[in-house]
């Protein structure tokens, strides 16, 4: 594993409206590593994911987000996307009337530039990835996330990741809403991209995903701070004892 730092959060503090959600988050991801991020509901995981992508509703009140040593703060979401940051949303929104095909083409062209193979080449690539993710071609003509089931939305998120080939992928509960087979397929999709060129932050509540996408490190976010960082085996303790285990470990300080 390379020792280059790919992505770093330094004492990141974030507010949404009047509420201070992140109170100083530190994280370091080296190139090609996969980190799992867990934590109770409402602890700020999605906030963290959204802030990394540049959601305009969140105010960064302190600290920094560094990608290849460059601060992402001040960059628009589209600029971050073009640098290679990708967020698979916990709740992807629908954009009625915009076909999946049209959207994918616009996204791929925006991030990767016009494909040399023309429209035909582009569609061929899309079809191949769709086949892998077992998404039927009929989805290409449907409105983006319009009437999609929870699981279908998640598959489409991963399809986008496979097409956009990001350097940093943040997966926000991609496993929630997936049936057993879909979970395996989606994980295989993610693993397709894994390698030295993809650094991953995988947000999840469950061990099952981490069995399929094996992380190098595990972090637990509680009350807006990283309350625990350790090896991937810690997930077993968490499954057994719940977050009280962490609370016991770190004492009353974060509770």
């Amino acid at each position: 594993m390379s020792a280059d730092v790919e992505f770093e959060l330094r004492d990141l503090r974030v507010k949404n409206g009047a509420k201070q959600i992140l109170q100083g988050v530190d994280l370091t991801l080296r190139r090609g590593e996969t980190h799992a991020l867990m934590g109770p509901n409402g602890s700020g995981k999605s906030t963290l994911a959204n802030v990394i992508m540049g959601h305009p509703d969140y105010e960064v009140t302190g600290g920094d987000i560094l990608f290849h040593g460059q601060s992402l703060l001040g960059l628009a979401p589209e600029e971050r996307a073009k640098l290679g940051v990708f967020l698979a949303f916990q709740y992807p929104v629908a954009v009625p009337g915009v076909s999946v095909a049209r959207f994918l083409k616009a996204a791929v062209e925006a991030v990767r530039g016009k494909s040399s193979g023309g429209a035909g080449g582009f569609l061929k690539g899309v079809r191949e990835q769709m086949k892998f993710l077992e998404i039927t071609e009929a989805f290409l003509d449907r409105g983006l996330n319009e009437g999609f089931s929870g699981g279908e939305k998640k598959r489409l998120e991963i399809l986008q990741m496979l097409l956009l080939k990001p350097a940093l992928g943040v997966l926000d509960e991609t496993d929630s809403g997936l049936d057993i087979d879909a979970l395996r397929i989606v994980a295989a999709g993610v693993n397709r991209l894994r390698g030295p060129d993809l650094t991953l932050l995988v947000i999840t509540h469950y061990e099952r995903l981490l069995k399929l996408i094996e992380p190098d490190h595990l972090h637990v976010l509680m009350n807006g701070r990283i309350a625990f960082s350790g090896g991937p085996d810690a997930v077993k303790q968490l499954e057994l004892h719940g977050y009280d285990w962490i609370r016991d470990q770190v004492g009353a300080e974060v509770v």
Partner: peptide, 13 residues
């Protein structure tokens, strides 16, 4: 805003 953010996160200005 959520639609805009979603599309912008995919590189569209």
């Amino acid at each position: 805003e959520e639609q805009l953010f979603y599309l912008r996160s995919r590189g569209l200005d």
